[in-house]
Simulated assay, not measured.
Amino acid sequence: MPFDGEADARGTTSGRVERNRHLSEKRHVSDSTWQTHGMDPRIARTRQSLQQALLALAREESLDAISVADIAARAGVHRSSFYQHYADKETLLADAIDATVDEAAERSLATGLASGAVAPDEQQILRTLEVFLEHASANASLFRRVLGPHGSALATARMRDRIDGIVREGIEHARESGAVPANDVPVDLEVAAVSGAAIAAVGQWLHMRPRPAPTQAAAWIWTLLSTSLIPVHP
């Protein structure tokens, strides 16, 4: 999703440079993640504690078996505090997924900025995918549920929105760098197709036994996505 004031600039290299600088500044804000930037630090800490509590509990038992009271107890807050921050467990789950994807993108961005990159390149996008898959693997049962037929519609939509943003960066970079031939396919349509394939691939990987390492899965998925970005001409 674009940040405020960036919608017009998102499709240009200069726009992405400004966006990276903007995100770099956010990394140095106390208690910051993209999701909690500008929020009261105490509220941010409580929400992060609730998110981490849900993820920890989901590694131990099914999501259906986890109650709001369980989450509050694990986070070290009163049950009433939960409802001061979240309407229900599904909204908390969606925020936890948001934070996972945002952290993956932020960590890869930090690597890119440290190397002097001003626009996302293949290695930075691949690193984003690797970090995201590391989180997904550590919380495999939860992500299988989210991506499954009976998963949370809100959490799935939020994750799809975040992945759309990462895919869009890759597509725009590939088009502007000349890495793929010019085509007249609308970017939004291409983003939907590619991110849909990425989510399906992640879901399949999470069900593999034994499950390949996140780095291997990221390389496979990136190969598939890179191939799908090259238009096929008759």
Rank of each mutant, 00 (worst) to 15 (best):
D188Q: 12
L154T: 09
L50H: 00
V29G: 07
V180K: 09
G148N: 00
S80C: 02
L23R: 15
Q52W: 05
H173T: 13
A69H: 05
S32N: 15
Q35Y: 13
A155Y: 00
G112W: 02
G116T: 09
A7E: 15
T46C: 03
G151K: 02
L93P: 02
A217M: 04
V194R: 14
D184H: 10
A218F: 01
P212W: 02
F132T: 11
I163D: 03
A197D: 12
D4V: 10
D4L: 12
I221T: 01
S137C: 07
E6K: 09
L55K: 08
S137K: 05
A217Y: 00
E61G: 11
L63S: 06
D70R: 11
W222T: 07
S228Y: 12
R168N: 05
L154W: 00
A69G: 05
H22T: 12
K89P: 07
A153H: 04
D102F: 05
I230F: 13
W222D: 09
P120E: 07
S24P: 02
D88M: 01
S80A: 10
Q204D: 10
G116R: 08
E25S: 13
L63D: 05
V232M: 12
P120R: 08
L92W: 02
W205H: 09
P214S: 05
S228G: 15
A99G: 11
D88E: 04
A193I: 11
R168M: 08
T91S: 10
R107K: 11
L23N: 11
A174C: 08
P120G: 05
V167H: 03
Q35L: 15
L93T: 15
A99H: 13
Q51P: 04
S81G: 06
W222L: 06
L224I: 06
A114C: 04
W205P: 01
L142C: 09
S137A: 14
P186Y: 09
A182L: 14
G170V: 00
S81A: 14
T33C: 12
H207K: 12
I97F: 09
V187D: 12
V232S: 14
R47S: 00
Q124M: 14
V101K: 03
V101A: 14
L113P: 01
L206R: 03
I71C: 01
S14V: 15
L229E: 08
K26I: 15
V29P: 06
E61V: 13
W34C: 06
L63G: 02
E190F: 12
A73F: 01
E176V: 10
W205G: 02
V77L: 02
H207N: 13
A119W: 07
R127F: 06
N139R: 07
T223V: 04
Q52P: 01
K89L: 02
D31I: 05
L57A: 01
V187M: 10
L63N: 04
S108L: 06
A201T: 12
